[in-house]
Simulated scan of single mutants.
Amino acid sequence: MPTNLEQYPNLRRVVTGHDESGKSIVMIDAPCTYHGADGDSWRVQDIWRSAVVPAPIDGIEPDPVAGPVDFEIPTTGVSVRITDIPPTPAGSEPFMHRTNSIDYLHVLEGEITMLIDDLETKIILRKGDTMVQRATDHAWVNHTDRHCRLFICMVAGRITPELEKAIGKMPEWDPNHRRNG
Score class of each variant (00 low, 15 high):
T3C: 10
T3A: 11
Y8S: 01
N10H: 09
N10W: 00
N10A: 15
L11S: 10
L11V: 11
T16E: 03
G17W: 06
G17E: 03
G17F: 08
H18A: 10
D19T: 07
E20Q: 13
S21I: 00
S21T: 15
S21F: 06
S21D: 11
G22C: 08
G22M: 07
I25L: 03
I25P: 00
I25K: 01
M27W: 05
I28Y: 12
I28G: 01
D29S: 10
D29Y: 07
P31L: 13
P31A: 11
T33V: 14
T33A: 11
H35T: 02
A37T: 01
G39F: 11
W42Q: 02
V44W: 14
V44R: 13
Q45H: 03
W48S: 04
R49F: 11
A51V: 01
V53I: 15
V53L: 15
V53K: 01
P56L: 11
G59I: 11
G59R: 08
I60K: 13
E61F: 06
E61H: 02
V65M: 05
V65R: 03
V65G: 03
V65I: 13
G67R: 08
D70F: 05
F71M: 13
E72Q: 13
T75A: 04
G77K: 01
I82R: 03
T83Y: 02
P86E: 08
E93V: 15
P94L: 10
P94E: 09
M96A: 07
M96L: 15
H97R: 07
H97S: 08
H97N: 07
T99W: 12
N100A: 14
S101W: 07
I102Y: 08
D103T: 05
D103P: 04
V107W: 06
V107A: 02
V107H: 04
L108P: 00
L108V: 14
E109D: 13
E109R: 14
G110D: 08
I112T: 10
M114A: 12
M114R: 11
L115F: 11
L115E: 08
I116W: 02
E120K: 14
I123A: 08
I124F: 00
I124A: 04
R126A: 09
G128D: 02
Q133V: 03
T136H: 01
T136N: 09
T136I: 12
D137Q: 04
A139Q: 03
A139Y: 05
V141N: 02
N142L: 07
H143T: 11
T144R: 06
T144I: 10
H147F: 13
H147G: 00
R149P: 02
L150V: 12
M154E: 07
M154L: 14
M154T: 14
V155R: 01
V155F: 05
G157L: 10
R158S: 13
R158D: 12
R158V: 04
T160Q: 03
E162H: 10
E162Q: 14
L163F: 12
K165R: 15
K165W: 02
K165G: 09
G168S: 06
G168I: 06
G168Y: 06
P171G: 06
P171S: 07
D174I: 00
D174P: 00
D174G: 04
D174E: 02
H177A: 02
N180W: 00
